[in-house]
Design a binder for these strands. Sequence first.
DNA 1: CTGAAAGCGCTTACAG
DNA 2: CTGAAAGCGCTTACAG
Lengths: 352, 352
Amino acid sequence: MVQNKNKESNSVTSHDVARVANVSQALVSRAFSGKGRISPETRARILKVAEDIGWHPNALARSVVTGDAPLVAVVTARLNFDWRAQVLSHLLKSIQAWHLKPLLFYAENDDDVDRLLGETMEWRTRGVIVMAGDIRARRAEAIISGGQFLATLNRPANHPDAFSVATDNQQGGAMAASLLVDEGRRKFLVLSGPQNNWASALRTQGFVEAIRSRGESVIIWHNEAMTMEAGKECAAAFHGLRHHERPDAVFATDDALALGFMDGVRGQTGIPADLSLLGFDNLAASSWLPYQLTTFEQPLSEMVGRMVHYINLHQNRPQDAFCSTSPHRIGEDGVVYCLPKIIQRSTTKPTP
Amino acid sequence: MVQNKNKESNSVTSHDVARVANVSQALVSRAFSGKGRISPETRARILKVAEDIGWHPNALARSVVTGDAPLVAVVTARLNFDWRAQVLSHLLKSIQAWHLKPLLFYAENDDDVDRLLGETMEWRTRGVIVMAGDIRARRAEAIISGGQFLATLNRPANHPDAFSVATDNQQGGAMAASLLVDEGRRKFLVLSGPQNNWASALRTQGFVEAIRSRGESVIIWHNEAMTMEAGKECAAAFHGLRHHERPDAVFATDDALALGFMDGVRGQTGIPADLSLLGFDNLAASSWLPYQLTTFEQPLSEMVGRMVHYINLHQNRPQDAFCSTSPHRIGEDGVVYCLPKIIQRSTTKPTP
DNA sequence: CTGAAAGCGCTTACAG
DNA sequence: CTGAAAGCGCTTACAG
């Protein structure tokens, strides 16, 4: 029936192009799709006309017709922190290379994520990539059973047919423990994040278990936020301890805590003279002159590479087998855990 | 004619919902849109059925029908550097609040941008936000004349009906000059970026003009990249100068250069004893203990706020008038230039 | 309150 | 090589 033409945009359609080019509408479709026979001359004419009147094929209509939108949903959260901006860069690059368009869903907080995943469904995307919050099993099932792929970064997908990659935080924690024990350290402290922070909790757990398995004991300081400020407060608390009580080995579950701790003890406690310090994440600043922090690098390219490989597989795209010499393991939860890499700098003693 | 049903996804439609709910397809549409009469009972029944069989309205089809897709295109580039991730966070949050979906276009390099703007057109978005590369006047015209809005951040839009906000880099440079001159400094050096970097070039220009207008002279060192490393190399070059040739006032056109310079001179040249140093951008690290860099903060929230206000206006959304006490000026190019804010820390002498 | 039907802007067999 | 027409999955007056 009578449709309100959008008043603002005098919406040009392929019919308009067809009219001025003196061809059928079907032909302008063929001129742009490259599918179906069309003589080079008419094609050129049509392209010219379209250019002149400023028409571009309507991707929305095309997607409805073909039943396939070249879209992928990306669920993310605050970019001003941590690894997300970095990973997002990698990911957007790959998505672009596939000629897909990323539709972003930005979560204010982790509880938002399930709602966003719901909105995701309306856009009939090829799949969804999740790098924030938790995925409920029901939601995962809805996505997968709709034929979409589901890929998650640094969190479990809670579905057997989804794909999850994560840093092996637990193993990283264990590696940190080994390193500090091998240095001859005896009194261990972990500067940890909130208990419900997946990464931080696993790093802590891996560290603590490894230390305890050697018969040593550890103290854990949980922080509400994993920030420089929190790290500094830990330093103040550290100086509040009597000398003989002070740990000589500190594992911070992320670099921000570690760097803040360093600034907090600067000039009062020598590192690594009085204590060894290990961080996690390898922030850019960790390599800078005043810090030179020994830390773990998350294998981000490796993880993104694996995810990209999985998605290509799902899209039936021809590709080489994924080969990587980087160590990894498959968890009971189906997550591919990639080993973080230790970056030895000056806050631990040089290994002989 | 016969359509190939997508083999993978046994695409559920509103007809399927209608069938099992025993109503017409039109009614399921009404159940979800909230427009048109429908009894609460049938509505509830339909919603239940949809939930059961996992149907969500198809946003693509809806957009085709209504001639209006709740989409906005965002053109950006590498997020692992500078202010972009931060601004993107702000922006995504606002876009989400409007119930619009951001479609991301990621530019590998600035030359990509025009091509991406072209792709943008296919999605019939409400408008496009550009925070990377240059906008050609023809392209801007195509976007605007199609009824879309065009908003650009930290670059001119090259169209009278577009909206551009930017940091007032030139004025920032001039402020830097004033501050150093008022300190009594006499020998000026600017650590600048590539000549074709818009922000860096304007910061440099503002600084140099202000210094020259006072009858003093300046030397400029251009760097290919605005990185810590480049800053360190500048420090080495600085130490290569004879003592009496050494500048006593350094303006780096971004914080990375400044921080690298600080690390390069650390322990050899006192700051601010031997020289004053000013950066630009106020990176998180600039406030950290080993740096305490005096620098300029870009008024990012202010800029995003103005952009959001403009976009709301374009969308005919009711809102309060934009009021801000922050100083700004409208350039001849139509760009709204917002004054950066100086953050005094310890690399300049305290003002009396 | 509900349904039948026209229409959105495209793509794609099919017939010429 | 080209066009007429059916169809994609919806929304929306219109008639009941």
